[in-house]
Amino acid sequence: MTTLAERPDVERPGPARRPNRFRSDRTAIYLLLLPSLLPILVLSVFPLLRGIYLGFTDARAGRNVEVSFTGLANYRELLGDELFWNSFKIGLLWAVGVTVLQFLLALGLALLLNQQLRFRGVARVLAVVPWAMPPVVVGILWKLVYHPDAGLLNEFFHRIGADGLRTNWLGDFSTALPAVILVGVWAGMPQTTVVLLAGLQGVGRELHEAAAVDGASTWHRFRHVTLPALAPVIVAITSLDFIWNFNSFGLVYVLTAGGPGGKTMLPMLFAYEEAFRYGNYGYAAALGNVMVVLIVALLAVYLRRRLREAN
């Protein structure tokens, strides 16, 4: 994220440093860029625009199906679709829950890893491993932990004599969503920790020492020195985490596939079912559009509040 601001080479002026042949030779540049730009335009930008457009049509699966523009019909239908609202609420709970817990836990871990503690090396390695795992594997791993008969969690409760707490974590209506959120936190924590740790290492030592000399308590120093210095990093990573979490798919698909009884049916899973089980392409695309608009709106509110706080 920091790289955004650092582009010393581009801005470097001074034609005297460059022989003529290095000066922008337009055709050459475009020839060099073409092999990259063309595929991105054809298979990324164009599909995206077409996807947005599809959200305003009645497109359906199947060859030679006529597609007609229907305006806001999909959105009117979405408004009255109880399953959509349900999925949307679950999606928000999931995205906000995972992002907040992920951030708090990652901040705690980053603060610990920033200290001279023993076992710090082990913790640093462990903290990165979940990041390296494919989402499908993370899903499988936690399915094993939550397994009603052969799972680590139920066995743990048995060993400590709390058999009453044993349950089918992913199959029970009341525990499925919290269980899935915990997995989301586990999977996303490493990246957040690494980013926050990098941010912490950029917080000036002198400020801390000065504050300590002035008699500020640990909490005060954290609140008034560390947090303000870390704020830009926190805003960036929590925003990104929120987007990633809201759009995540593979993890929950493997864990519960949206069950039991739709209790973990994230919007992405809902859209996937609409599109590829029922073939309602237009409707699914409309759902995607609504998701984008809502993410942008939520982020705008969040970022504006942070900005106001900063001023």
């Binding site: 991105i40 298979l43 995206l48 392409y281 695309a285 995607g288």
Partner: peptide, 28 residues
């Protein structure tokens, strides 16, 4: 070479994160 395309590429990296795959997958 000085070019706005570099910024555009980076912008696209960030922007593409925002859009759910379901919007892309059907046209693709």
């Amino acid at each position: 070479f000085r070019s706005k395309l570099g910024t555009a590429a980076l912008g696209w990296v960030l922007l593409s994160q925002l859009f759910p795959f379901v919007l892309l997958i059907i046209p693709i």
